[in-house]
């Protein structure tokens, strides 16, 4: 499929317009005030307006600028899923499981994000990096996070 416009810039313009519109809409819900005593909504609304304006320029320019020289790169879906999963997992479990089990599983998941890492490699990395972090943060820097949380008590 060949395009005769810059897809990157069309999408970038649309994202800016989208972000600007969302902030502008939310700003309208706050008190505006006047220039002499600006309310909480005044400055964000101005910024959002400028952002929408820039987004529109980028969008229109993109339509006439010819195709991208370098196509949009492929998204590493596997990496994205594992990394976001790892972060959310850490957030959900660090209190309940405690630092050691939570971090271990988080690193395991994060390591799986690479196409070149299998479960065994990820396991080895999880052990090594968890030990490294314990040494660094808990032993050397004296971080006081519970190492094992309430969920691990049997």
């Amino acid at each position: 499929m060949t395009l005769n416009y810059s897809l990157k810039n069309v999408l970038a313009g649309l994202i800016f317009i989208g972000i600007g519109t969302a902030f502008a809409y939310a700003s309208l819900g706050y008190e505006m005030g006047r220039a002499v005593r600006m309310g909480p909504g005044y400055f964000p609304l101005v910024l959002a307006g400028i952002l929408i304006f820039f987004g529109a320029i980028i969008f229109v320019q993109a339509l006439f600028s010819g195709p991208d020289e370098v196509a949009i790169s492929a998204t590493p879906w596997r990496g994205l899923l594992f990394l976001i999963g790892a972060l959310v997992f850490f957030g959900l479990t660090v209190r309940g499981l405690g630092l050691v089990p939570s971090l271990f599983l988080t690193v395991f998941m994060a390591a799986m994000a690479s196409q070149r890492t299998g479960p065994v490699g990820a396991l080895v990395m999880a052990v090594a990096i968890t030990l490294l972090c314990l040494g660094l943060f808990v032993w050397a820097l004296g971080l006081t996070l519970p190492l094992f949380g309430p969920w691990t008590a049997f």
Partner: peptide, 22 residues
């Protein structure tokens, strides 16, 4: 591939330790 899981681990611990907030 060995480096970035360590970066994620550091980022998680470091960020969490500021406010203890997930």
């Amino acid at each position: 591939r060995i480096l970035f899981p360590a970066i994620i681990a550091f980022a998680c611990i470091g960020t969490f330790s500021i406010n203890q907030n997930a």
